[in-house]
């Protein structure tokens, strides 16, 4: 079963990571889900695929009353992000899914009614949750063509989807402790998966203007404090997306 780690709490405003399942099958990529709570309302980010639903749901039940879930945020359309949609709708058929408008006719293949999908326009949008307002921040082409991250200005925390992801051993700690050692597990992934240098520059500029204490990716580990800036600077310098030869692809993988 997955474990839960509280990343932020101020009164009834909290971020909890659902992470690291020691029993997970090795052929499934490890994922981090995040629960954002304000008052008696909770939003879950990228709740994962069908195969890991029992493990995620069980951990969610431990951390919160799952009946307080009032919405799902999907950074993009991948199966490890949201293929469990129809199962979450069993808990509450009226749960809205906030996601890029680009996927509003693709994601219904995972389940849901027309009313389930709340489209986010390309420029992003605010999402109200209890007493706070979250911001869906554009991250298009990183890696998906319709891609959003979720920023909480009060907690100074950015859920960064696949940006910042690292392919780590299962027993790796959730928080990055040694940036230089950690980033070696992230480099190949970013070079191969992030599709556009222009999009990367655009994202780095955008997020460097935000006050961020924690950068929380969907795979790997959480960057805290000075490591947030280190990551943004590292990513700003990284050449991505243009891997011309099969040899270069193999090296980057």
């Amino acid at each position: 079963m997955k474990t839960t780690v509280e990343l932020f709490r101020e009164g009834d405003h909290a971020w909890v990571a659902v992470t690291r399942d020691p029993l997970k099958a090795s052929h499934l990529i490890d994922t981090n889900e995040y629960l954002v709570t304000s008052g008696n309302q909770t939003l879950i980010t990228d709740p994962g695929g069908i195969e890991i639903f029992p493990s995620v749901f069980s951990a969610v039940c431990r951390a919160i009353d799952p009946r307080t879930l009032i919405g799902i945020f999907a950074s993009h359309q991948d199966p490890d992000i949201i293929s469990s949609l129809s199962l979450w709708l069993e808990l509450n058929p009226k749960l809205p899914l906030y996601t890029s408008w680009l996927w509003s006719s693709f994601l219904p293949h995972f389940g849901g009614e027309a009313s389930t999908f709340v489209s986010i326009p390309d420029e992003g949008r605010d999402i109200s949750l209890g007493a706070i307002t979250l911001r869906a921040v554009p991250a298009h082409y990183l890696h998906s063509s319709g891609n959003f991250h979720l920023y909480d200005p009060k907690a100074r925390l950015l859920f960064s989807g696949d940006v910042g992801a690292a392919m780590l051993p299962l027993d790796a700690p959730l928080i990055v402790k040694d940036f230089d050692a950690h980033i070696t597990h992230a480099e190949g992934f970013h070079r191969r998966w992030m599709g556009s240098n222009e999009a990367r520059r655009d994202w780095c500029e955008r997020v460097s203007k935000l006050a961020i204490d924690q950068l929380c990716p969907q795979h790997g580990a959480v960057y805290q404090g000075a490591d947030v800036g280190r990551f943004i600077n590292w990513f700003a310098e990284l050449e991505v997306g243009v891997l011309k030869t099969p040899e270069a692809l193999r090296q980057a993988a």
Binding site: M1, P54, F57, S58, C61, S86, L87
Partner: peptide, 17 residues
């Protein structure tokens, strides 16, 4: 036991679906 049930029944739900 509750955690066992949560796991077992949600697995079962996935299979039934």
């Amino acid at each position: 036991l509750t955690e066992k049930l949560l796991q077992g029944l949600s697995h079962s739900m996935v299979r039934r679906k």
